[in-house]
Nucleic acid binder design. Sequence first.
DNA 1: AAGGATTCCAACCGCGACCAT
DNA 2: CATGGTCGCGGTTGGAATCCT
Length: 309
Amino acid sequence: MDALWMSTLPSSTAAVGEDETAAAELRRGPWTAEEDALLSGHVAAHGEGRWNEQAVAAGLRRTGKSCRLRWLNYLRPGVRRGGFTPREQLLILDLHSRWGNRWSKIASHLPGRTDNEVKNYWRTRVQKHAKQLGCDVGSRRFHDVVRNLWMPRLVERIHADDSAAAAAGAATSRYYSASSAPAACQSVAAAAPDIVGNCGVRAPSPDAASCVTGSSSSSSWEASPAQFETSSPPAMAAGWAATAEQCQQNGGCSSSATSGGDMFDESWSELLARANHDGAESAGLPDFGLGETGDNWWSLEDILQQPLY
DNA sequence: AAGGATTCCAACCGCGACCAT
DNA sequence: CATGGTCGCGGTTGGAATCCT
């Protein structure tokens, strides 16, 4: 398959100078293992940056731009690949509602994930759902569906996973201190403690602490992200347990999605159809107070801070 | 089993910001 | 201030993989 991409840029001309010859030999397309090894070795020795120089010094017939992209998205240590977990999906939905297509900014709060991966997730999964619903991702309709169906399902899934882990003795679950963090952060941490914790670890600044909530600062919050690990506040747990029960009663909420899968692959359409026909409340869906989320179309905080039902 | 359709994602491109000269 | 080089971001493309008929 590489052969097709081994073509060079641009096509040569009758009389080319040295620069043009060099340009004509630039490779494009998929990277080979040898190229990866060359680039990795060079970056390990000389650090990141000055990509054009590194490309030449390493003997790579690639542009600096291409080298940078390959390193950041694939070769860099710590890059995570594979499907997004429910926590990551939840965070992407929430952060996108705040920042829009700021992929790099969103990815910075998902440890090990690149902007390219987040962007691809959005385009392939989220936009796919919007298409299935016959609406645009920017439409009010889609935002409501995400906020009232998708995000609660993700939270439900997260708690189910946490419970399973706790039951297996794999976690030392404990409730967080009610006074130790801003309310909004508590809510987010309850749903995605590892993500929030990682935000704090990676960038223990007020900005990092507010990675999801947008809150400005909180010393107690910044100081102890670990306290949120596998948290399961009783009220929250009761709330989402109720959600699960209601979904089961309505026969539309399978929990068969895997960590890397898509939460709504199986029940999305029928749930939505039911919601459209009966209205969210009669369909067993909680009333989240549509249209009262301020600047954000949907918000993880809002989802989690809704009164129990 | 075969072939067409769809999905996924690695890689490229264009553009703007930033910085050094 | 102008210019050129570098870098980073977001949008787009196209081939491989997977699904569907």
